[in-house]
Design a protein around this nucleic acid. Structure first.
Lengths: 213, 213
DNA sequence: GAGGCCAGATGACGCCCCGTCATGATTTCA
DNA sequence: TGAAATCATGACGGGGCGTCATCTGGCCTC
């Protein structure tokens, strides 16, 4: 019975983690998010139920509602999460860009790379014809949109480009990126470079033709 | 008791309409469609229930299922209906177009006019934040997309324009039109001409810059 | 380390919507 | 006119939803 390392319940003194209470809360929230991603991937958003999600976590049904109000809210949280992870990437592109073209190319390339990565964790075994609702305007998503518009404004001004309708232009660019990105994911092999080139050229060519304000 | 006009149950001999059975069927189907449009407009797609729709028609709940399998199917029917009404308009533009620019301008202008018209019958009193699911790929919608792509192919070839990635290009054009169209509807006053000009110029400018196949 | 407190996990419950189906009413046909 | 076909009806079983009274166990105080 020497004093070898055997510390049944001794708390680690340098463990400055929050208490167990807080930790399980974080873990539960994450577990629900993970389960939701899997269930949405397998059953599709429409078919999936709150019970399907919570069942996969092993938690009780009531527990779900301690974290999210509804299936819709978990979905938004997932979308928000994606936007939150993408934001710094976008910001980096915006910082290193020297003109509109380099920013646009960098941002679209980054978005398509991001799409390809995310793609894996979502499109698992989705029933044919099932479709995700278009992501709603969660705070983070709105922030990304705003950031794109602001970056456009800044870079275009720096280029001494003529003023255009920024709202229309931003919306149109995001629409092109989203749609071409979607189509890109449906092709085999996935050609990020080609798709990005297409979107960039289309936008870049369209810009000088736009009506001036 | 002369033979004045008193024909209790005499069928109109020159009435070549289908039998009563068929007529009420058509009427019911239409009533459900109308009710659905109104209910979706007032409550939003998510909130609305099959019962909300059928209640407005005065029919029994079971009757709904003699016509549509679900709320989703009525929604698709409404979307399909819109596409079916738009198709001849698009076709007319395609027929009278002499080159890509005139076709594009005509088609987008027609779409935006159509949007502005439809707008009225839908966006009545929608709760804030509520959103319609993106229209699913119903047969008529797919047909419209195909028609756009085919018209693009025909007109571009006629212009001796260099070959581009038609799938990407069509998707991108539709995306631009849809997004700019949406934004157009949010502005007051609604400026169809301005929005159409924006979309047309953007696409027209982008086209020559696209990568050649 | 004993005791009390309270955040939060639990799952049974009532509610409502869903889709079905046996029934009856009405039209059509012979 | 009577039989058959069609279809509107609304009651019903099933199931997901969101709540809530209850309980569990972490945390804090002495």
């Amino acid at each position: 019975m020497s004093n070898i390392a055997y510390f049944p319940a001794r708390p680690d003194p340098e463990d400055s983690r929050p208490g167990k209470r807080e930790r399980t809360k974080v873990a539960n929230r994450q577990a629900i998010l993970d389960a939701a991603r899997a269930v949405f991937g397998e059953l599709g958003y429409e078919t999936a139920t709150v019970r399907d999600i919570i069942r996969r976590t092993g938690l009780a049904s009531g527990t779900f509602y301690n974290y999210y109000k509804s299936k819709e809210e978990v979905f938004d949280a997932l979308a928000d999460d994606g936007a939150r992870r993408f934001r710094p990437i976008l910001r980096a592109e915006s910082d290193k860009a020297v003109d509109f073209e380099s920013f646009l190319r960098g941002a679209i390339r980054a978005y398509f790379d991001f799409l390809e990565g995310e793609h894996e964790s979502w499109r698992i075994n989705r029933p044919a014809g099932e479709v995700f609702p278009h992501a709603r305007a969660t705070p983070e998503i709105v922030a990304v949109f705003d950031e794109v518009r602001d970056a456009f404004a800044k870079v275009l001004e720096h280029d001494h480009a003529p003023a255009v309708d920024l709202d229309y232009f931003t919306a149109a660019c995001i629409a092109v990126a989203r749609e071409v990105g979607d189509k890109m994911l449906e092709r085999r092999p996935i050609d990020v470079e080609g798709a990005a080139d297409f979107a960039v050229r289309m936008i870049l060519g369209g810009l000088p033709a736009l009506p001036r304000l």
